[in-house]
Every structure is written in C-alpha cells, then in structure tokens.
Computed example of a mutant assay.
Amino acid sequence: MTTTTPFQRFAIALASGTVLVAGLSACVPLVVGGAAAVGVGMVATDRRSSGAQLDDQGIELRAAARVREIANDNMYVSVTSFNRQVLLTGAVGSDADRRRVEDLVQRVDNVRSVVNELTVGPPSTFQDRSNDLFISGKVKASLLDAKDIFANSFKVVTERGVVYLMGIATRRETDRATEIARGISGVQKVVRVVEVVSEAELASQAQQAQRGGTGSPAPAPAPSSAPGSSSSSSRVPLPPMEPLPPAQPGGATATPVR
C-alpha cells in the first residue's frame, strides 16, 4: 500500500478546488458547493445517508438557479448544503438582497434550515478567493493528517479568511477540528455549523449501516496523547475556544470561534 506524504495529501485536498479556481477569473455571481462533485468512494465514507447526499446535490443546484435569477453586479453568493442544511456565504449589495436570497433558498425543496452568513458590501476579489481556496486546502490536508478524528465528518468552506466547518460529528471531534483549523496560517475565525451527535449515536449508525451493507465509517478513534498537536507549524494568536452550546435536536449549531 502506497503511503502519501503530507505534501501529496495537501495537493489532493487542494485539487478538489480546481473547478472553483477555473471559475474565479470569470464574472460568476454564484458558486455552488462541493456536493455535486461527490463520487462513489465519498458516498461510502460519509456520515450522511446516500439520500441526504443526493438531496444536497439537488439543493445546491436548485438554490443556485433561484439565486441566479435575482443576481446583480453587487452579488456574489456561495451555496453549500450539508445534510439538507444550507450555508450561504459571500456578499450582497443590501440588507434587502441578503434577506431575499435567504428566503429564496429556504423555500427550496428538502431544505431544513439556512445559516445566512452573507455580508453587505463589495464582493470578494480574485485574490481573496484564491487565498480562501488555499486556506481550505490546508485545513482539509491538516484534518486528513490528524489521527484522532474522521476527516470526512467535515466539509470546509472559507470566505475571506473565515473558515466554516460543516458536518456531523461528536463534540470532541468538533473541538479537535476547530483547534486544527485555528492553527492554520491566515485563518481569521472559525465558525462551526455542525450537527453534534454522541459516540453512542455514531456507533448505532455504524451498526445499522453494516447490517444494510452501506459501508458507513465507524466512529473516530479516541484522542491521542497529544491533542494539541497539529500538522501546521504556524499558529494564529487566537483566544481560547468557547464550549459548544447544547445540541439542538435535528439541526446544526452555528457557533463562531475567534
């Protein structure tokens, strides 16, 4: 079995954004998240059900079409769906546009909730988006390097240095992934949009998946003896993380961590 180096893992993670890079040079007012690019291997290692993964693809495409109908020169919106919960990032020209985009996306079939992180102001520049893509690649590579969490539990979205972690994970995994992201150079803030589950719930899901033959991953291994270690050699001087609030049944919790 071939062993990949940290550089190779970073290259693999960064390659996932190739399509986005190609679109950065064009005047595209809307970016669709990565769900539509999910392959067969990812389906088998994802904590979402196969139905939820297909729904996420459809949600992103339908939401993109609706937002495109109202797009203007001051609007750059990124739509990312995970487990039928949608994250909106980017910039719009007014508060009215911000509310309008959220309302349109909320009414897309199968959307459970919308986390609206759109800002009012000028859209990000080509340099901003290139830097965000680079940061996302480094975060993904660092999550892959970590031995005490399941990297595929999280989807990484970056907007102007703010890293959004979307996923289905335990509190320990969420805190660990946040710690890793905070250690990446260029990260300004981490926002967790995570459905928090218990270890027991993960074990039950894994047993059900095994009986159904879907090959769902087992819970992540226990924390290592050095939980503060990270594959990144540079750290952002950020204050301590605040604990996650109590989990809300059936929904993700969005918590900013500076």
Rank of each mutant, 00 (worst) to 15 (best):
T3W: 01
F7Y: 10
Q8F: 04
R9Y: 08
F10I: 14
A13N: 03
A13D: 06
L14Q: 09
A15Y: 01
V19C: 03
L20Q: 03
C27I: 11
V28P: 00
V28Y: 00
P29T: 13
V32C: 11
A35G: 11
A36R: 11
A36M: 12
V38S: 15
V38R: 11
V40S: 10
M42C: 06
R47L: 14
S49T: 13
G51F: 03
A52G: 06
Q53E: 05
Q57L: 07
Q57S: 12
A64W: 00
R68G: 12
E69Y: 09
I70S: 10
A71T: 14
N72H: 05
D73Y: 03
V77T: 09
F82D: 14
V86G: 05
L87Y: 00
V92W: 01
G93H: 00
D95W: 00
R98G: 05
R98V: 06
R99D: 15
E102F: 02
V105I: 09
V105G: 04
V108M: 02
D109H: 04
E117L: 10
G121H: 04
G121L: 09
P123I: 12
F126R: 02
D128K: 02
D128Y: 01
D128C: 09
S130P: 00
F134N: 05
F134E: 03
S136H: 04
G137P: 10
V139H: 03
K140F: 10
A141C: 06
L144Y: 15
K147A: 15
D148H: 05
F150D: 14
S153I: 06
K155H: 11
K155P: 02
E159N: 07
E159V: 06
V163D: 05
V163R: 02
Y164K: 01
I168S: 01
A169P: 01
A169K: 01
R172C: 07
R176V: 09
R176S: 12
A177I: 07
T178H: 00
I180V: 13
R182F: 06
G186P: 02
G186Y: 01
G186Q: 04
Q188R: 11
K189I: 05
V191Q: 12
R192Q: 15
R192P: 03
V193T: 07
V196H: 02
V196S: 08
L202I: 15
A203S: 13
R211N: 09
G212Q: 15
G213L: 08
S216I: 06
S216R: 06
P217C: 11
P217E: 13
P217G: 13
P223W: 06
S224K: 04
G228Q: 06
S231R: 02
S233R: 08
L238C: 08
P240A: 14
M241G: 10
E242R: 00
E242H: 00
P243R: 04
P245K: 10
P246V: 12
A247P: 01
Q248L: 03
P249R: 12
A252T: 10
A252K: 06
T253R: 08
T253L: 13
T255N: 14
